[in-house]
Computed example of a mutant assay.
Amino acid sequence: MQLIDKLKQQARQLKSEAQVLILAYSDKRTPLSAKIIIGLTVGYLLSPIDLIPDFIPVIGYLDDLLIVPLLITLSIKLIPSVVLTEARQSIKDNPKKIKKNNWIFAAIIISIWLALFYTAYRHFSYLWK
C-alpha cells in the first residue's frame, strides 16, 4: 500500500507541472515535437474521459499512476532547459490555475474519442455480422 501512495504523490507532483507545460507550449523556442507531446499530455490531463475508467478496480488508476506521469516526463525532457526554467519561474512568480471546466476543449476531446470509436467500429464491424 505504501508503494501506491508514493506513486500517487509522484503523480500529483508531475501534474503540478501541467501549468509549466502550458507556458512552455506557448514559447516560440519550444520545438514542434515537444509541442505535439505537450498538446497530447495537457489534452489527456484535461480530458473528461480516461483511457482506463477509474471505476475499474486496480487497473482503473493505471493511467493516473503510469500514463500521465510518463507523458509529463517525456514532455519535460523535450522542452529546452532555458524555456523550462523560465516557465517554472513564471509560475512561481504568478501562479495560475488550470481551468478544469473548459467545455470547448472537452467537446474536442470527446469528438476525438467518438471518431476513434467509430473508426474501430467500422474496421471491426465484420466481426458482428
Rank of each mutant, 00 (worst) to 15 (best):
Q10I: 13
Q10N: 11
Q10V: 08
R12V: 12
R12P: 05
Q13I: 15
Q13T: 15
Q13L: 14
Q13Y: 09
L14D: 10
L14I: 06
K15I: 11
K15M: 13
S16W: 07
E17Y: 11
A18W: 01
A18K: 00
Q19R: 04
Q19D: 02
V20W: 03
V20A: 06
L23Y: 11
L23P: 01
L23W: 05
A24R: 05
Y25Q: 09
D27S: 15
K28E: 13
K28G: 06
R29A: 12
T30S: 09
T30G: 11
P31W: 03
I36Q: 13
I37N: 07
I38P: 03
I38H: 06
T41A: 13
V42Y: 06
V42Q: 10
L45R: 03
L46P: 00
L46W: 00
L46N: 02
S47K: 02
P48H: 00
I49T: 10
I49E: 04
I49M: 08
L51A: 13
I52K: 03
I52V: 11
P53G: 01
D54I: 15
F55I: 03
F55Q: 12
F55N: 13
I56Y: 07
P57M: 03
P57I: 01
V58Q: 06
V58T: 10
V58R: 10
I59Q: 06
I59L: 08
I59G: 07
G60W: 12
Y61H: 15
L62G: 05
L62T: 10
D63P: 00
D63G: 04
D64L: 04
D64R: 05
L66C: 13
I67N: 05
I67A: 15
V68I: 15
L70K: 14
L70V: 15
L70C: 14
L71F: 12
L71E: 11
T73N: 11
T73M: 10
L74D: 05
L74A: 09
S75I: 04
S75T: 04
I76Y: 06
I76F: 07
K77F: 15
L78K: 15
L78F: 10
I79F: 04
P80T: 05
P80M: 10
S81H: 09
V82I: 14
L84Q: 09
T85H: 06
E86G: 01
A87S: 05
R88Y: 02
Q89P: 01
S90T: 08
I91V: 15
D93Y: 06
D93F: 11
D93M: 13
D93K: 12
N94L: 07
N94E: 06
K97R: 11
K97A: 11
I98Q: 08
I98T: 06
K99C: 09
N101T: 08
N102K: 01
N102E: 04
N102M: 01
W103G: 03
I104P: 00
F105N: 12
A107S: 13
A107V: 00
I108Y: 08
I108R: 04
I109T: 05
I110K: 01
I110C: 03
S111V: 00
I112Q: 00
W113S: 00
W113D: 02
L116V: 08
